[in-house]
């Protein structure tokens, strides 16, 4: 019967390959000027954080009461000094380390956990879906700031606890997105066709679901990095994140708060850094979304 198929071996020498989806995304992304500039800014910030010991002109924790709150352009302290006389430039450079860690780390962790939760719920459907998603909704119902503060407050201050609470804040958000795209894809004919050919759940999820849902979840997650940056800064500002005297932009904003009437430009500097970083991540994630969102 159908075994004729294997007999007429039609093995062509060359199979024309179309560029894959991700190649297309990269190509489109590289043509997006704004996204590329944002990417360069992000790369520079990361580089700055890594090379902090070599770039910083001064020790970020060594202060001197004699040179408190020096203005911009002071010889030896280009960006002035803070309320304890520490060199602002050095603190901003060193601050990038903790700020970036706090801003960036929770998102990939939440991406993995949230996607898993959402995809399971979306694929299983029915009662399992209801149980998982209603639990997720309980967390989602709180405003993210409130939830982050409440969690950090309960866990106590410190970098790790801040990271944990930020991750917990993002999991429900990512899970909801993951659940809705999975439910959508799950209904498509090609998933039905795969079921009809006897494929098990694991194979269907791996081959047909993941490839089609991870991209939109990923885009949504990258947009959370900027939120995470701001929340992390907020936690530190409230004293729930990094402890002094470590340099972190949110914490610096807090300690400089008292100096706002004396030297407002210095007090604003950490804010500017937070702003630049968060905008850069945001623009890059926008570009990524545009590059991925093609009507194929």
């Amino acid at each position: 019967m159908a075994l004729t198929l294997t007999r007429e071996k039609a093995q062509p020498a060359i199979v024309l390959r179309s560029p894959g989806y991700w190649q297309g995304v990269l190509a489109r992304l590289s043509r997006d000027r704004i996204a590329m500039i944002a990417l360069i800014v992000v790369a520079l910030l990361i580089l700055m954080a890594i090379l902090a010991p070599y770039l910083a002109p001064d020790d970020p924790t060594r202060g001197s009461l004699a040179r408190r709150l020096k203005p911009l352009g002071t010889p030896g302290h280009v960006l002035g000094t803070d309320e304890l006389g520490r060199d602002m430039l050095s603190r901003l450079i060193w601050g990038a380390r903790l700020s970036l860690v706090m801003g960036v780390v929770p998102v990939p962790v939440a991406f993995v956990l949230g996607s898993a939760i959402g995809i399971i719920a979306g694929y299983a459907g029915g009662l399992t879906n209801s149980i998982i998603m209603r639990t997720v909704d309980v967390f989602y119902a709180f405003p993210s700031v409130l939830l982050a503060v409440a969690l950090s407050g309960t866990l106590g201050s410190g970098l790790t606890n801040a990271l944990v609470s930020l991750t917990v804040v993002f999991i429900p958000q990512i899970a909801r997105v993951a659940e809705s795209v999975t439910t959508q894809v799950h209904r498509l004919d090609y998933v039905e066709a795969a079921r009809a050919s006897g494929a098990g759940s694991l194979a269907i999820v791996r081959v047909h679901i993941l490839g089609n849902v991870l991209a939109p979840i990923f885009v949504f997650s990258t947009s959370l990095i900027s939120v995470s940056m701001i929340l992390a800064a907020g936690l530190s500002f409230l004293g729930l994140g990094v402890r002094p005297p470590d340099a972190e932009w949110g914490l610096m904003l807090n300690t400089l708060r008292t100096a706002i009437y004396i030297n407002p430009t210095i007090a604003a500097l950490p804010g500017v850094m937070i702003f630049i970083t968060s905008i850069a991540f945001n623009l890059f994630s926008d570009g990524l979304r545009n590059a991925m969102d093609v009507k194929t």
Binding site: L5, T6, E8, K9, A10, Q11, P12, A13, I14, V15, L16, R17, S18, Y21, T296
Partner: peptide
């Protein structure tokens, strides 16, 4: 191999179509 033979059978040259995407 079976995919290529089938493509051939339904009138699509595997050399041209096997590596392409639905859209």
């Amino acid at each position: 191999e079976r995919a290529h033979a089938l493509l051939n059978r339904v009138g699509l040259d595997p050399g041209r179509f096997a590596g392409r995407y639905p859209h």
